[in-house]
Deep mutational scan, measured.
Amino acid sequence: IRCIGVSNRDFVEGMSGGTWVDVVLEHGGCVTVMAQDKPTVDIELVTTTVSNMAEVRSYCYEASISDMASDSRCPTQGEAYLDKQSDTQYVCKRTLVDRGWGNGCGLFGKGSLVTCAKFTCSKKMTGKSIQPENLEYRIMLSVHGSQHSGMIVNDTGYETDENRAKVEVTPNSPRAEATLGGFGSLGLDCEPRTGLDFSDLYYLTMNNKHWLVHKEWFHDIPLPWHAGADTGTPHWNNKEALVEFKDAHAKRQTVVVLGSQEGAVHTALAGALEAEMDGAKGKLFSGHLKCRLKMDKLRLKGVSYSLCTAAFTFTKVPAETLHGTVTVEVQYAGTDGPCKIPVQMAVDMQTLTPVGRLITANPVITESTENSKMMLELDPPFGDSYIVIGVGDKKITHHWHRSGSTIGKAFEATVRGAKRMAVLGDTAWDFGSVGGVFNSLGKGIHQIFGAAFKSLFGGMSWFSQILIGTLLVWLGLNTKNGSISLTCLALGGVMIFLSTAVSA
Rank of each mutant, 00 (worst) to 15 (best):
C3E: 08
F11Q: 07
F11W: 11
E13L: 04
G18H: 02
W20F: 05
D22Q: 09
V24E: 06
V24F: 08
H27P: 02
G29S: 15
G29R: 00
G29K: 00
D37P: 00
K38F: 08
P39N: 10
V41D: 05
D42G: 09
E44C: 06
V46L: 03
T47G: 15
T48R: 05
V50T: 03
S58K: 01
Y59V: 04
S64R: 15
M68L: 12
A69G: 09
A69H: 10
R73S: 09
R73C: 12
C74D: 10
Q77L: 01
Q85E: 07
Q85C: 12
S86N: 03
Y90N: 13
V91F: 15
L96N: 08
L96D: 07
V97A: 11
W101P: 02
G104M: 11
G104W: 09
G106E: 04
K110V: 04
S112P: 00
S112K: 01
L113Q: 11
V114R: 01
V114D: 06
C116L: 02
A117Y: 03
K118N: 14
F119T: 05
T120D: 02
T120K: 05
K123Q: 15
K124C: 10
G127Y: 05
G127W: 02
S129E: 11
P132Q: 14
E133Q: 10
Y137P: 01
V143W: 07
H144G: 06
G145Y: 06
Q147Y: 15
Q147I: 02
Q147W: 11
H148F: 14
M151G: 15
T156M: 12
Y158R: 13
D161Q: 04
A165N: 01
A165W: 13
A165L: 11
E168A: 02
T170P: 04
S173W: 11
A176N: 07
A176F: 10
A178F: 05
L180I: 14
G181N: 14
F183K: 10
G184M: 12
S185T: 13
C190E: 08
E191Q: 10
E191R: 05
P192W: 07
R193Y: 07
T194N: 11
G195V: 00
G195F: 03
D197C: 07
D197I: 09
F198C: 06
F198H: 03
F198Q: 05
L201C: 00
L201V: 15
Y202H: 13
L204V: 09
T205A: 13
M206L: 14
K209P: 01
H210M: 10
L212A: 07
K215D: 05
E216G: 08
W217F: 09
H219E: 01
I221E: 04
P222Q: 03
P222S: 12
P224Q: 08
A227D: 07
T233W: 06
P234Y: 05
P234R: 09
H235T: 07
H235Y: 10
H235A: 00
H235Q: 12
N238M: 09
E240K: 13
V243I: 10
E244C: 01
F245K: 05
F245D: 07
K246P: 02
A248N: 05
H249M: 12
A250I: 06
K251L: 00
R252W: 06
T254A: 11
V255T: 00
V256I: 15
L269D: 11
L269Y: 10
A275L: 00
D278L: 11
D278T: 12
G279L: 00
K281Q: 13
G282Y: 13
G282R: 06
F285Y: 12
C291D: 06
R292F: 01
D296V: 07
L298H: 04
R299S: 04
K301G: 00
K301R: 15
V303P: 00
S306C: 01
L307K: 00
L307D: 00
T309N: 15
T309S: 11
A310D: 14
F314H: 01
P318F: 09
A319R: 02
A319M: 08
L322G: 00
G324L: 03
T327N: 04
E329Q: 09
E329R: 02
Y332M: 09
D336Q: 13
K340W: 09
M345V: 15
M345E: 01
D348E: 15
M349Y: 01
L352S: 15
L352C: 00
L352G: 07
T353N: 15
V355S: 15
T360Q: 07
A361P: 09
N362Q: 10
I365G: 00
I365R: 00
E370T: 04
N371E: 12
M375W: 07
E377P: 02
P381N: 05
F382A: 04
F382G: 01
D384T: 10
I387C: 04
I389E: 05
G392H: 06
D393W: 13
K394L: 08
I396S: 13
S403H: 09
G404I: 07
S405M: 07
T406S: 13
E412T: 08
E412R: 00
E412C: 09
A413W: 07
T414F: 09
G417W: 07
A418W: 11
A422G: 00
V423T: 06
V423L: 15
L424K: 04
D426A: 05
S433L: 11
G436E: 01
G442T: 09
G442H: 06
K443N: 14
G444C: 09
I445P: 10
F453N: 13
F453G: 01
K454R: 15
L456G: 02
G459L: 01
M460I: 15
W462G: 07
Q465S: 08
I466T: 11
L467A: 12
G469C: 14
T470I: 01
L472H: 01
S485R: 02
L486I: 15
C488N: 01
L489R: 06
A490F: 14
A490R: 02
G492S: 01
G493L: 08
I496V: 14
I496E: 05
F497R: 03
S499A: 15
T500P: 05
V502Y: 11
V502E: 10
